[in-house]
């Protein structure tokens, strides 16, 4: 098992290096000459100034040397400086990431906690009311566009019923909780600051539900399909023939086998939630990576875009590793 993890980690590092190379090459081949952009027409017409400038920024070096410099910067945790914010990209990311991770994780847990039991129930009581509800939920979740869902939820629960607070992570007049992680739920709970905790949770509720909808739909549908398949397997029949209670048959024999495809989907979905919350974050004024990504892309802020891309690919690699490890945990046939 340890060996398996080691091999997978090693290959993840190789993959991350390859990803960095691809990112570097792409950002080098995008049209647009930094010399022209930075110096302006008059200075750029003077060849000696241009040559000096190129030498200063290392642009006269061969591509591979430049990659090496980029890579060594990367190894020291240096992603460069953002053009838009004039701050190191890493600092920006560190500031925005917790908000996104918190939102994505809560959404993901919501999707799992609701989706898996719903899918199981739908398969066990096939063609019943539960099944109809599950199918409706998964269809709606998958097909309703995020922006539409977001506006409807805001209009109903904030505008009309007034149950939910407005956009943002906290009340505009509230202070962020003390603590260093930037995860408001975690920090406030550790401080015993339950007032802030409730405030943060209330603000999180709507965006989390909206963001979870699509994932919830997929997980419900996949769980239902996988359970239906497993419930028709011989070993389920064998378990029934042994006189096990139906509950044990479903939970111990069928569900564990059915979870394998759900784990694949869940891993991909979580990575998607982490990196694809642009729309939700924008609508709910959520100060997360999604909004940072959107702003950087709009401003053609290449260092920031490269930093984000690298973080995204690292996230996918990590999630994939976790998915593969869960396989080994769930299915002994994968272990070697």
């Amino acid at each position: 098992m340890l060996r398996y993890v080691a091999i997978r980690l090693a290959s993840a590092v190789v993959m991350a290096l390859l990803a960095s190379l691809v990112i570097f090459l792409i950002s080098n081949f995008v049209p647009g000459d930094p010399v022209l952009a930075q110096l302006g027409d008059i200075l750029a017409s003077d060849p000696t100034v241009v040559a000096q400038w190129r030498a200063k920024w290392g642009l006269d070096l061969p591509l591979w040397d430049r990659y090496w410099i980029f890579l060594s910067g990367l190894l020291h945790g240096d992603l460069g400086v953002s053009i838009a914010t004039r701050r190191p990209v890493l600092e920006d990311i560190a500031q925005y990431a917790p908000a996104t991770i918190e939102l994505a994780t809560v959404s993901f847990l919501l999707a799992l906690v609701v989706g898996i039991p719903l899918g199981v129930a739908a398969a066990v009581w096939r063609d019943s009311i539960v099944d109809a509800v599950a199918r409706a939920v998964s269809l709606l979740g998958v097909s309703a566009p995020t922006f539409w869902l977001a506006f409807i939820f805001l209009a109903i629960f904030y505008g009309w019923l007034g149950w939910a607070p407005g956009p943002g992570r906290l009340d505009p007049i509230a202070f962020p909780p003390e603590g260093s992680t930037g995860f408001f739920l975690w920090d406030s709970a550790r401080q015993g600051d339950w007032e802030t905790f409730h405030d943060a949770l209330a603000h999180l509720a709507l965006p989390a539900i909206v963001l979870a909808a699509a994932t919830l739909g997929l997980i419900t549908r996949t769980t239902r399909a996988a359970m239906l398949e497993c419930l028709h397997q011989d070993y389920v029949r064998v378990a029934r023939a042994k006189g096990l209670k139906e509950r044990a048959v479903v939970l111990h024999h069928a569900l564990r086998n059915a979870l394998v495809p759900v784990v694949t989907l869940g891993g991909l979905a979580y990575a998607n939630l982490l990196t694809g919350a642009v729309m939700t974050e924008t609508i709910f004024a959520w100060p997360g990576l999604g909004r940072y990504t959107f702003r950087s892309a709009a401003a053609l802020d290449f260092p920031a875009i490269m930093g984000i891309t690298l973080v995204v690919s690292a996230t996918y690699l990590l999630v994939n590793l976790v998915v593969d490890l869960s396989y080994a945990l769930l299915d002994p046939r994968v272990r070697r």
Binding site: V238, K242, N257
Partner: peptide, 19 residues
């Protein structure tokens, strides 16, 4: 079931739970 009467199935590969 399983206490007074038991059953053995044909295909032991699919009849045993793989996990």
């Amino acid at each position: 079931r399983g206490a007074n009467a038991a059953m053995v199935f044909q295909d032991s590969l699919t009849g045993l739970n793989p996990v």
